[in-house]
Design a binder for these strands. Structure first.
Lengths: 260, 260
DNA sequence: ACCGTTTGTTCCATTTTTTGGAACGTAGTC
DNA sequence: GACTACGTTCCAAAAAATGGAACAAACGGT
């Protein structure tokens, strides 16, 4: 096993729930002999990959990781990062992808990724739609506080399609469902015959919030295919939340950690 | 030379001015044979410290550096406290605030607080700059012993902008001035047309040292406004020194010695 | 299509580093 | 003052890195 591999094994011990580690922690987590741990920790500290608190003598990620992390493409821009991932998913599933942002209680489409399936693009970039009648729109709303949601949705609840939540109570039920599952869906709402599934993504750094959806023809897709889309979206959400530092991703990670 | 050392040599080739590198770039910058470069780049990619663009085949810092970078000093009280105070000052003055740490004779920007003034952020987090050409960099150096300063500044004194200290003697004169007043300033040094004032803050407990600065456009500020910034910084420094137990007048070496 | 060039990977005997058990510090504690 | 927890250093055996050379793949010009 190479020195680099061992170094990485140590670095991978750190996480949001374990931002710093003692010598003993590292030894237990890596299962390596004391001598190896001692030498390796010293090397990592000397080269800047780790820092050691002079008082507690605990180790934490070093200045070099900070500098390099700032160069990672995730800092380019949230939308471009999401678009790259969405392109992959659309290529695999053949469906059409959307990226939107929230503006008041409406959403604005920013990017469209056309898939191979011949579903006409009905929501061009710039299109405004009430967020309460789309999958990604509701996903974004679900990320706001109840108070914030109430402030955004007009008191005079708008007239919406039959499949959409018909009043504020129904809306909150839908949003709470999304908060539980992390994924949102819609069918025959904004456009007759079109269904979609989506989720919301936040940047851990700027707090910027975007909604991502994949849409398809309801008739032309089977239940199996829609389940596949759901899996793809779930995996995509997990990847993006890691890359963008979405706080929701960390919560989910912690829950997964507790379970295992 | 160990595998880890070589790996670090490669990682240190990346910077804000060089966020991605080709195989050839790395080979030239490290001066290593092709075979070694090839193997090491593959290892770094496989372990997540580097990513490779599938199209351009260029390398850039990987997801692991991003994740670790987010953990760097995430729970650092000194920085969190300073950032809160800096936010207030930047809100009042409209200028842009920086928090940096010293690494050798260079400083690395850790935090930025953007003000309301439209001065584009030119030093993003992670940016490395010689500490001798910035206000907060010199303020940090001034907190070291003369011996330690001499050890850090390269014997072959670097080429610096016209307004910066041109040699070691001039540098020490500037640093002694900072030691007297507690505040440091700069104008037209690291960036043409940009001035800044700053100070250094140490934790009385750990000996940790950070540099805080507020920067502004030289043309767009009056002498009166700069005097106002100076007052604000002086007051902020006093508040922070009380909170963090910074015994101004003691060198960092003395502090670190007492702590351990 | 062909040849030369650039660019990167794989091979392998030699050199160098890593490994991990054991002996050796160094505090803190009862 | 012995005991213990915590780390570091030593050293011979084992494993990995090295780098020149052969090899492969992609590109570019004619």
């Amino acid at each position: 096993m190479s020195a680099l591999t061992n170094a990485i094994d140590i670095l991978r011990c750190f996480s949001t729930s374990r931002p710093d580690l003692s010598f003993a922690d590292v030894q237990v987590l890596t299962g390596k002999p004391k001598s190896s741990t001692s030498r390796l920790l010293r090397s990592l500290r000397d080269c800047g990959l780790l820092e050691q608190d002079p008082h507690s003598r605990r180790y934490r990620p070093g200045l070099l990781t900070f500098e390099l992390g700032r160069l990672h493409r995730a800092h380019d821009d949230l939308i471009a990062t999401a678009e790259r991932e969405l392109r992959d998913v659309c290529a695999r599933t053949g469906h059409t992808g959307y990226i939107a942002v929230l503006d008041g209680y409406q959403q604005v489409v920013l990017r469209i990724v056309t898939g191979s399936n011949p579903l006409r693009v009905v929501n061009p970039p710039g299109q405004r739609t009430p967020a309460i009648i789309t999958s990604n729109g509701r996903a974004m709303l679900a990320r706001l506080s109840d108070q914030e949601i109430r402030a955004r949705v007009p008191l005079d609840y708008p007239k919406v399609p039959a499949n959409s939540p018909q009043n504020f109570t129904e809306l909150m039920a839908r949003l709470n469902e999304i908060r539980r599952t992390g994924i949102s869906d819609a069918a025959d709402e904004a456009i007759e015959g079109v269904g979609s599934q989506g989720f919301a993504l936040a940047s851990g750094e700027s707090g910027e919030l975007i909604g991502i959806a994949v849409s398809y023809s309801v008739q032309a897709t089977t239940e199996i295919e829609r389940a596949n889309v759901r899996r793809e979206l779930g995996a995509m959400a997990a990847r993006l939340r890691r890359i963008t530092g979405d706080p929701l991703g960390q919560t989910i990670e912690q829950l997964a950690g507790l379970a295992s």
